Structures are given as C-alpha cells and as structure tokens.
Amino acid sequence: MKTENPTVQIVAISADQAGQRIDNFLRTQLKGVPKSMIYRIVRKGEVRVNKKRIKPEYKLEEGDQVRIPPVRVAEREDNAVSAKLDKVAALEAYILYEDDYLLILNKPSGTAVHGGSGLSFGVIEGLRALRPDARFLELVHRLDRDTSGVLLVAKKRSALRSLHEQLRLKGMQKDYLALVRGQWQSHCKVVQAPLLKNILQSGERIVRVNSEGKPSETRFKVEERFEHATLVKASPVTGRTHQIRVHAQHAGHPIAFDDRYGDREFDQQLRGTGLKRLFLHAAALRFEHPNTGETVRIEAPLDTQLRYCLQMLRKDAKPQ
C-alpha cells in the first residue's frame, strides 16, 4: 500500500456515484486514510466541490467536480491494516451469496459492521480489502456488533438506492432468532413501544421505551420452549437502534447475555450451555433483487455456540 497520494486529484462524479455523502465517498477514494483525517481535511476546506467548501454530510450530485488534496498516511496505519489480514481473509468463509449487485454475509458475533469508536476494523473495511477491485461497496443496513447473521452489502449505487427504498417502504422482511428469559406468552404477538435513544457521557448508546421516542414495532412468534427460556422469532417492522433487544426487555423477556438490557440471573441459569454471547441472530432476509426484481430469501445458519446452547437446552428438557 502506498503511504501517500502525492498530487491533487479532481474527480468528476458519475451518475453511479451521485447521492452519497462526501465523507463516505472520500473513504472509498482514500483507502487506508483514517476517518478522523478525512473529517479534518473536509472541515479545513481542503476538500472542495465545484471549488466551494462543503460539510461532511454534503450529498454529491452527478457532474460535481471534487477536489481531493494529497494525503499522507502514517506508516503505522499500514501496519494496522496488515495486522488485520487474517480477519479479512476469514470473511470470505462467511459470504452466503454474491453477484454483480449484492454481497450477503453471515456476520459473526463480536465483529462491528464498520470501524470507528476506537475500532480500526469492521466488516465493510474488511470486505473492501477483500475485494480491492470493487468500485463500490456499501452497507445496506446494520447489525449490532454482538448480533450475528444476514448482512446485506450493495455493490452498485443503483442497488443501494433500490434496497434503501424497500427498507423505507417496509418491503424487506427480516427475521431474527432470540433466546429470551422465561415463558413468552403466545398471545403476545406484537410489541409496539416508542423508542428514544440516549447517548451517555461515556459515548455509549442506551435506548429506552419513552412516549417521546420514535414509533417502533416488532412481531414475535414462539419457536421453541425450554424450562427457563423461550426461543422466539422476532421480525422488526421498523428499524430502530437496539429495537428487538429493548422490545424483548419491555415485554418482560430480556435476551440471553445482553450486556445492556439483559438479566444476569438468567445468564447464570444458562451457564451450563456454553453460551457466552448475545443470543440474537439475523436468521433470514427476504427482498426483491435490485436488478431482476425476483424475490430473494437468504438464510444464515446459527454459529456453533448458538447451536450447542440449543442442544444443551433440549437435552435438559427431555425426561431422564
């Protein structure tokens, strides 16, 4: 990897590049440059669009002329990327589906979808390193760091627009599996509770049910019952931060090993199952293919730890 871009670049924005924020565009043009540096050169006016200063949230239009200044990347940044090569290579094994428009991943638990907040590595940075020739790779939606399962990535700007429109019109069906405390009542099929996001002084995000929050809805269905827990299918109608986790807690059934909204006593009851991570998995996703219009349904298998946990719970449930 080169450690600097020696000359000013002037880039004309194509129709395929239009519609994205300037900061996201610069991250694809200045690979390896820290996000903090990109924001700094935008704030200082070193990046110009049509010879004018812009803000990081500026959305590019077709025909815009973007001035990108020469940027020197410290050698230690290259070393940081090199240290992540094994993680990048490992992502290949998690790819469920790929074509010219989409890449769909079974995201492992514990991996953030993007870097930032002290994290140098995320799924999207890893995929860009894994597919260096891909001109465009952007997340269609997000999953919490500790949530595993289906993650959709667009390989074309037109695909991203189509899939975002499906999300906006609630045309995309997402189904999660969650292991929750106690016996979920079969008559509780929908949780509608407004959610308000709070940022603590530490920078941590906590979401609470609050009448001043945004309208939020999750549908629940019992999949399997155990002595002290229930496996439920959760299908969010809206897409709020931590929505399933907070709605499960609000219903009186927090999710196993949820470090923000969970119940430690419940987690202790699961000690013999080998579970050490949040039991929330994006199991399936249904949407219209942005090119063919055909209905696509992708399923992501549970990881070894979640499968083992369920096996142990079933074993305990059987009469001796």
Rank of each mutant, 00 (worst) to 15 (best):
V88S: 05
K276D: 13
I38S: 11
R168C: 02
D267R: 03
R67Q: 14
F226T: 08
D146M: 11
E62Y: 04
K174T: 02
D64M: 00
T218M: 02
F136K: 06
H114C: 01
R314Q: 13
G171Y: 02
F121G: 00
A300G: 03
E125N: 01
Y58T: 11
L30Q: 08
T292Q: 02
N79E: 15
Q269I: 01
P69Q: 12
K156E: 13
R43Q: 13
K318W: 11
L30S: 12
T230L: 07
R168Q: 13
D86N: 12
K59H: 09
D144G: 06
P70G: 07
R128F: 00
A282G: 04
K31D: 06
K156N: 03
C188L: 15
A154W: 04
I104A: 09
K59L: 07
S120K: 11
H247I: 01
G149A: 05
D100V: 03
V209T: 13
S211T: 13
L196T: 09
A18Q: 02
I68A: 04
I13F: 01
S235L: 06
S82D: 14
Q166K: 06
K155P: 07
T273S: 06
L231T: 11
P34N: 04
K59R: 15
V81H: 12
R27I: 15
E294K: 15
R181Y: 10
V123D: 00
A154C: 07
L105N: 02
E46I: 02
A129F: 07
Q249W: 06
K189E: 14
Q305A: 14
S235H: 00
P236D: 02
K233T: 12
S117K: 07
V140R: 01
L306G: 10
T111I: 15
I244K: 08
L143S: 03
P290M: 05
I38C: 11
G115Y: 02
L152A: 11
K221C: 07
T111A: 08
